[in-house]
Simulated assay, not measured.
Amino acid sequence: MRIAIISDSHDHIPNLQRAVKRANQEHAELLIHCGDLISPFMLDHLRAFQGPVHLIYGNNAGDQHLIATRCTAMANILHHGFHGTLTAGPLRIALQHYPEPAHDLARSGAFDLVCCGHDHIYAVEQINECLLINPGDLLGKDAEPAFALLETSNFSVRRIVVGDKLILND
């Protein structure tokens, strides 16, 4: 199974569209969004994924009521609130926006995979029997916008760049 893991899209429509399109092209069967989707209008782009989507809020939760309500009406998007757990085949997976609690979840021994975001820094770390993945960000503020693609048969992870770095004037 291939799992696409994205985070911190921050209302960047073109990069989310590119990531979903590429995840579909890579035959990902599951998509995880680790928070900071922000606006409800982004859900229309996220639901273009051809499989189930699991979504949590981040620290920029946007209109929480509207996001939760719209997810209920979208067949392929499951909204978990601020953190979530799921199983995919034999894998026990946890979703947490913040890296520090994600590390605690990985050390707990309760999960095979923990996904997080928030700091916009791509990282893959093996903690005991758990793989911790932070896909970096789709916004592209400080690095090229990208997501992670996990191949569960051998737990290999690829970073897939989807757009140009955003230039912000400080």
Rank of each mutant, 00 (worst) to 15 (best):
L131M: 08
D36C: 08
L91R: 04
G51N: 07
I167G: 03
Q17I: 13
E125G: 01
I67K: 07
I133Y: 05
Y57M: 04
V157N: 09
G62N: 05
H54N: 04
D142H: 15
I13K: 15
T72E: 14
P101I: 03
R158T: 15
A68W: 04
M1T: 11
N15V: 08
A106Y: 00
A148E: 06
P14W: 11
N154M: 01
P145A: 08
H54G: 00
R107G: 00
L31M: 13
Q96I: 13
L113S: 02
N76F: 09
D36Q: 06
I6D: 02
I127R: 00
V53P: 05
F111R: 07
R70V: 12
Q64D: 06
R22Y: 05
Q126K: 11
L46F: 03
P40L: 01
T69I: 05
T87H: 13
Q50H: 15
F147G: 01
N15S: 11
Q96F: 06
L95S: 04
S9N: 14
P135Y: 13
I6W: 03
T87F: 07
C34P: 03
D11K: 07
P99T: 11
G62W: 04
F111K: 09
A48T: 11
D170S: 10
A146Q: 13
E144Q: 13
A73T: 14
H118P: 10
N15M: 05
H65G: 09
T72S: 12
N24T: 14
L46N: 05
I32K: 07
A94S: 14
Q50T: 14
A68K: 12
E144F: 04
A146G: 12
Y98K: 07
A28F: 12
D170T: 13
A110R: 15
I5K: 02
R92W: 08
L138T: 03
E151Q: 10
H118W: 01
L113H: 01
I38W: 05
S153T: 12
R2Y: 13
L139S: 06
A28V: 09
L131H: 08
G140P: 09
N24I: 14
A73N: 11
L86E: 08
A143V: 06
Y98P: 01
G58E: 00
Y98L: 13
E144V: 09
A102C: 06
